[in-house]
Design a binder for these strands. Structure first.
Lengths: 134, 134
DNA sequence: AGACTGCTACGACTGTTGTAGTAGGCTCGA
DNA sequence: TCGAGCCTACTACAACAGTCGTAGCAGTCT
């Protein structure tokens, strides 16, 4: 358990996100991407974040050329999962059922998504047990 | 916009949770509940959290008897919603569709939940627009 | 009245996060 | 070879989060 992906700060996360999106990158690369997004950060600030992320085991670095190249060590999935689970545990008793129901009831879905949901669910309930269909 | 429910810390949240669960309570009440849960905190620590929560506009206090009685000012729903949205924005492009699909695919649902999901969705897709049904 | 008990106000300390500057080393072109 | 740039290491610092101690006030018990 070397990577403490739980305590990645907000700003650190932004940096990690650019690595997920743009693959391996140097400090300058990351900074440029952030700047394009309107996020103005000093070079050394980005460096600090990458260094801290490395200490936390979330990225690795290797010096191929002039500068260190950083690449993500934890997957986006892993982190999103753990974030989501934190919310789940704190507010939904750890089980996703109520959460999903709430989201669906609030109708924040496109028709395409609803269709897909239906498919997935229909595929799902075939396995566990028989259900009557109206 | 007086209540900044976004920056409630982890420990502060625990305190707020006990208010949601047990209604209005004094510092000592909250502390006792936490102790029962195995969360050992000094009286003054709990007091600090409640004071900070009050500064953030998340609880109110009134002195009816000997001690101040604190009661939640933001609803659990409000906070869970904003926490969830943070995760949604950071990892799921702000839209809950992919999140729900991921959760469902991971099969973390009981059969009862699946049934309920099906009901809710079937009721849902009637409204927005006509859909072809396989 | 004096002692005791419980409550709050205030301050303090540590670790973390967000943000950045400075100093010194390496590299490449002139 | 020498200077201009780019890179990293180290340091700094404010804000906030987590944690608690002390001191003083108010009510209570004897």
């Amino acid at each position: 358990m070397t990577s403490r992906e739980a305590d990645i700060g907000q700003a650190e996360l932004e940096v990690l996100q650019t690595l997920w999106e743009h693959g391996p990158a140097t400090v300058r690369d990351v900074m440029n991407v952030l700047h394009e997004r309107g996020r103005q950060l000093a070079y050394t600030t980005v460096l600090t974040f990458l260094t801290r992320l490395e200490q936390k085991g979330c990225v690795t670095s290797d010096k191929s050329g002039l500068a260190y190249v950083y690449r993500p060590k934890v997957t986006r999935d892993k982190v999103s999962r753990s974030r989501l689970e934190a919310v789940l545990d704190a507010f939904y008793d750890g089980s996703p059922g109520p959460l999903v129901l709430q989201l669906i009831r609030e109708g924040k879905f496109t028709n395409a998504e609803i269709a897909e949901l239906q498919e997935v669910i229909d595929g799902l309930d075939a396995k566990p047990q028989r259900r009557t269909r109206s």
